[in-house]
Design a protein around this nucleic acid. Sequence first.
DNA 1: ATTGCTGCAAAACGTTTGCACCTAT
DNA 2: ATAGGTGCAAACGTTTTGCAGCAAT
Lengths: 151, 151
Amino acid sequence: MRHKQAAEILREFLKKGKNRITPERFEVMDSALDYDGHFGADDLYVIMKNQKSRVSRATVYKTLELLVQCDLLSKRNFGDNMTRYESSFKRQSHDHLICMDCGRIVEFTNTSLENIPQELSKNLGFNFENYSFNIFARCRNIKTCKYYRNK
Amino acid sequence: MRHKQAAEILREFLKKGKNRITPERFEVMDSALDYDGHFGADDLYVIMKNQKSRVSRATVYKTLELLVQCDLLSKRNFGDNMTRYESSFKRQSHDHLICMDCGRIVEFTNTSLENIPQELSKNLGFNFENYSFNIFARCRNIKTCKYYRNK
DNA sequence: ATTGCTGCAAAACGTTTGCACCTAT
DNA sequence: ATAGGTGCAAACGTTTTGCAGCAAT
């Protein structure tokens, strides 16, 4: 167990529901929090397999959803019909700019929205949960743009 | 041809590239612009099939991308790994709130972003192309929330 | 003892592709 | 004549599911 503090959060979350505390779930949590950047569920599965883990694809997919529910991960969608995750443990919330040529993802903190999403939800008759703000653009400097999609 | 003005835009766009002007493309355009709301490519294909059209799935998928390129449609992603389209012909730009319980989509015009996406792109060294701003929330009034996902 | 979780393989889903034929240029 | 488009079916990549056995409660 590499991430003790996160493990405690996960443990408490699992206890609250009708979820069982299994070693596989902590194993997935450790690998997910180790990952530096945005990853697909299958990416993580392959990494874990390469590290001789015995977890199954199904367990990885299901556990990632649990980790989103207890706010250890955030779920992202960058418009290519593939769910990505990133650690949100002890991380400031931020938004993303995606290069449409090379797929590079730049994170930025955006102050202009403040609590607009919350207020809009309220005004429209909804309880706010989440928002996503993505900018799609192209690297201006060709030297920094690799012109391929890094999947 | 039900949408003459849009057809002219499409025709001009096709001429500019090395694209051919085919009846199938105008057929897809007509059906897409007829659709009131957000639709998946396959939804449209099924509708057209039910209306005894002979267009193929491949043609529908490819033509929708062309219609995005000439700004007759916009492409949306609401976090469920499925590309949706909506008419943007003579429509003001807007953002979306999605109910996580019933899947209802509410459109709103958001003035707070103004040209923030453009400026952010510039500051980060990119040429702006597009942005997406989605709010995920839950219907506060249970009577207006159907509690099922309308796919 | 019970019920939830696991691994596996198969299925599902939206989407893309290969190919032979066709058609706009 | 020729490049580009079409329809069809098969393939693709990601995600979900069914199920028998297993393990946490």
